[in-house]
Structure formats: C-alpha cells, structure tokens
Design a protein around this nucleic acid. Sequence first.
DNA 1: CGTGCCAGGTGCCAT
DNA 2: ATGGCACTTGGCACG
Lengths: 325, 325
Amino acid sequence: MASCRLRPLLYHCSFASKVCLHVLLSPCSSCSCPWIIGHFERGQVFAYGSLRRCLGSACLVLHLFPRQIRHTYSHPRTAKPSTVKMSWLDKARKALAAGHVLIMVGLCIIEYEGRAVSKLGEGERIVIIKKDRSILVHRPIGHEPVNWQPHRSKIELIEENGRRIIKASRANELLKIVFLNEPETYAFQLSDDAEFEMYASEVEMKEAVLLQPDLIEEGFTPLTDERKVGRTGRVDIFGVDRNGCMTVVELKRRTATTNDVKQLQQYVEELSREFGKKPRAILAAPSATKSAITFLKTAKIEFRCLTPKTCSKIIRRRNGLDAHL
Amino acid sequence: MASCRLRPLLYHCSFASKVCLHVLLSPCSSCSCPWIIGHFERGQVFAYGSLRRCLGSACLVLHLFPRQIRHTYSHPRTAKPSTVKMSWLDKARKALAAGHVLIMVGLCIIEYEGRAVSKLGEGERIVIIKKDRSILVHRPIGHEPVNWQPHRSKIELIEENGRRIIKASRANELLKIVFLNEPETYAFQLSDDAEFEMYASEVEMKEAVLLQPDLIEEGFTPLTDERKVGRTGRVDIFGVDRNGCMTVVELKRRTATTNDVKQLQQYVEELSREFGKKPRAILAAPSATKSAITFLKTAKIEFRCLTPKTCSKIIRRRNGLDAHL
DNA sequence: CGTGCCAGGTGCCAT
DNA sequence: ATGGCACTTGGCACG
C-alpha cells in the first residue's frame, strides 16, 4: 500500500491503452466522487472515470492492489479499507466504478417506461448490473429477465428515505428499481476473455454449401452468396445448376414456414423481372411445416433437406483435414 | 428442532398438494440421497423428491423451519444445521431441493449441444439456477445470457476430481458447466407473487381500435378481429369503411418494414381471390421505413400513424371512465 | 401438439 | 443511423 500525490499527469489517461494493473483510487475525504479504476504503467498512473472532477483538491490516497488473483473472490466491502463502515450506496457506487459486476437480491418494485410501459409490484428479485452497465431483473422463476436495460445505459444509484433506488436509462427508456429494504449486495471482479464459439448456425450452413455445393444438388455451382434482390431483401446463395440455369438457394436452420416460402417466392418474382427469366428456387432446411410444403408445390419451389448439424460436421471435417495437410 | 422416525406413510406423498410448511429433510448419515423438500400437514409429513430411495434405512433427522421471514435472507449454509461442514454438492443440492434460487460465481468452461452446439473456454461467469430449474449463464458483459436452459430442465450436480459440474438437460438439449474451482455459491428463498403488468402492446393497440375505430379512419367499422386469410395467416382487424367497402387493418407496434407491407399485400391478394373484390388495406404503425413507404405506394396500401402509447392512453382513459361511472 | 405471430424482442452486419 | 435478417430466438394463442 502506498500513499502519493497525484499530479496533473493524470490528464494523460488514455481510454484505449490496455489495463495492466488495476488500481483503486479513493478520493480525498473532502471529495465525493466515487472510486475509480485505472492502471499503472511504467511508473505512471493512468486513471479512468471522473477523476478530473477531484483534481482540484489534488490530494488522493492511492491504494494499490495487484490484480486480484484469479478464481478468488472477495467482496469489495470486505476489501481494504473496510475499517470504515460504508453505506450500501458507497459500496455499490464503488463497485460499479471499479468495473465490478454487482448482484443485488431483495424486495423491490419495478417500473419501466420506454417503447412500452410495465409495472411490477412488491416481490423478491435478483438484480444484476454488469461492467458494461447493462442491467437485468430476474424473478425467481422464468429464464428470461422480467425487465432489463442493455449495455451503456446510464446507471444512477440513489438512497432516499431508506429506499435504495436504481435508475437505468438510455434514449427514451427508463427502468426504475426501488428496493424497499437494503438488498443483499455482492460485487465481483470477473475476468472472462474466452471466445464464444457457436456451431451449426445458418452461417455454417452457408459455409458448408459453398465448400460442398452438392449438398444442394449434384452439379450446383454457387456464384455469390447474399445476393441482393430488388431494393430490399437478399437470397442466401445465388448460383447455377448443372444445366447452367440460374438457381437461388434459401437456407433455414429450423423448420421452414409458409412465410419462408412466400419470401423466397417474392425473390423469384423480383429476379424474374430483373433477368426476364425465372430462376430455379431451392429451400434448404431440416424440415418444413405442412402448409409450407403445400405452398412449395404451388410456388414450384424445390425443397432440400439439410440440417445445421450435417453442415457443421462437414465444416469441421474439412478444417480437420486442412490442419492435417 | 425435532427428531423423529418417519414411517412408510411417506409413500402417500402427493405432488399436487399445496406446500404449507417447508421442511428440510436430511437423510440418515448412511444414505447419500440429497436433502429434499416436503410439507407438513395435519400432523403428517409429506415429502417430495427421492425420498423413497432411503426409506430402507427409514431413520431420518427432521429439521423444521418456519418459512423464512420475508425480506431477510440467510444462506442455507449458515442456517442450521451449520455445525456440520457441508460440501458444495450438499449445499447446492439442498438449496435446489428446497426451491431456493442458486447463484454461483466462478471460473468455468461451458459446453452446449442441442439445436446448435457451442463452446466457451475458461472464464469467470455467473450461473443462476431458478426454482423452476431454468438455468442461466451470464458473462461479465452483455445483457443476454451466453448459455441457458429454459424451465423444467433436468439439473444434475456432480463433483468429480475437484471439479463441480452442472448438467442441465431436456429433450435433445444439454448444457454442461464445469467449474474449475469451487464457485462462490449463494442460495435465496425468494417469494414473488406480483403480477407483471405490461401496457402499450399490440394487443392494447387492437383493443383501442375496437373501442374507438376512428383511430383508423372516420366511419371505419370493425367487424371481426383476427380474421383468417387463406389457410394460414390472419389480418389483425377486418371491417368496412364509411362506404361499406371491405377494409383490412394490420397493426404494428413498431416501425413497419417492407416485409410487413408485403405480408399485408399477400393478404389483400388472397382476400381478393376469396371475395372477387379487392379490399382496402391499411397499415397502422408508429412509423415505417423508407423502403416500406415506397412499397406502400406501389401496393396501394394506405398508412395510418398510430402509436402504442396513444392506444394505451385511450384504453386507460376508458377504463378510468368505466370505473368512475 | 403443430403453426403462426408478437416481442420493450436482441444482435450482427450491411449500406 | 437505417435497414434487413438470424436467433438454441422465447412466448402465447388457437386449431
């Protein structure tokens, strides 16, 4: 732990530079701005957040912690300096400012007003505020949040007549959570840089067809993917069949519906106008609803059974082959 | 706290009967089945879960807690009997069986295989298992879960070579979370019976138009709502205009797109075939995209600006009036 | 149960 | 910013 005078060099802080050491900066006692997160690099301290506001007083106490050891958690409130009893407001603000993820559990009422309006009376819920200032309200049942606000919303924490209030707002959208008692509050410094890999998506289906066009039909040759049709809309794959006939392919990773068929039919009509000749149209999907099948017949659109998993396997087999060669 | 011998009357447990008092049942020490939840009624104990497995040994220790006082939280691990040090597995299983909401935070890897396949390497995440056995995995950023499983999935908790594993499965869908260390684990008994009220939805828009049809046009008279068109599809409101001309109205609570126009156009064509006469078509929405507007013109479909909020206000004003009369 | 369609849809990527 | 579209879409309502 060290104590130092922070000089205006703090103005040189760069939001783009990589954080190599997390630093919690507590303002001098006469200043009310929250703790902020910064980093330490080549002997200089770079800080983010609202530090400029307290540069007037200039004297800050600086506590240096090495970046928290992975896999161990400690609540900021139990972290130093915990000798001072902090209010919920201070704890929560500090945690947010430090980029921690906040979890609060307690009795609350919730109001939302934005594109729609919603109200939710007294009940016990879980509220999560993430580092990116997205916020979630979860009831004890149901896998979807009952209310939420996406990232970069403005988070305000208020304490008023014993009620802890969270306001999360962005353009024309306001979410207000009023805790009737002090909620159980936890903060976590979470580090998660792993890449999320998703297979068997529609993108992979397209990749597989481009790699191995006979998934659609013997002799099919893709020319472009994502060809625009008309002013709006686009087909997934545009190509020619073994006879050189223009062929459009629409891919669906799920059961095809009448709507999918109608949309493809629209594209066929627009392309007919554009080329003066009707293209072949193939809908490739794992299955189709009954009514979709009847529509396929009347619209003279062909169907090819193709599952996302098959496509995914082909991609991965190919990748394995590439790696092996 | 009481200790008792449970006789085979436990076989009479009914899954339908209402829980009036939560009872935590710990098995005799020789039995490995998890704690289970039951209820106490007219002097008899009814139990759910896997109790039958341990009826052979028959001797159980019964701890009675009154249902937790609202607004106060205590982690089950700190609740009696905490004199016995419990493993993560026991704590988590007990909490789940008792219908608590479990929150776990820790370093984990995640695999999902079902309709799609996903993998997520090492990282620190928040895992929530709710009473309805829905499960969520949240990364420190992004307001949507990275992985999930809806309610009524089968939750398995496993401890294996120091790794805590959660498997959440339902038909053809498996989510596997492997904690590389013991995660921070919290359990909450949450009570939330409030009704979620949502205003300014498309349903309210329709109600408002039915109540006050001149929102669409002076002299418009709705005949039915949700009329079927063709074998599939339906228009929101079907009626006649001041001249008795058949008129269909499509409502959108958000900016109308070309697709919306095309769909309405489809309905017009099908209704034309059905009636041998072209109906008027009106798209009512708060706004429309540029290309939607050009499509509206070519398709000779009319546009009426109507916002969900306006409709909501009308409904609420009307309701207020009704209450007043 | 299948089918259709709304959702405060959300998110991604294109122009 | 606007627009088009996929999504482990989820969810409800209706035949």
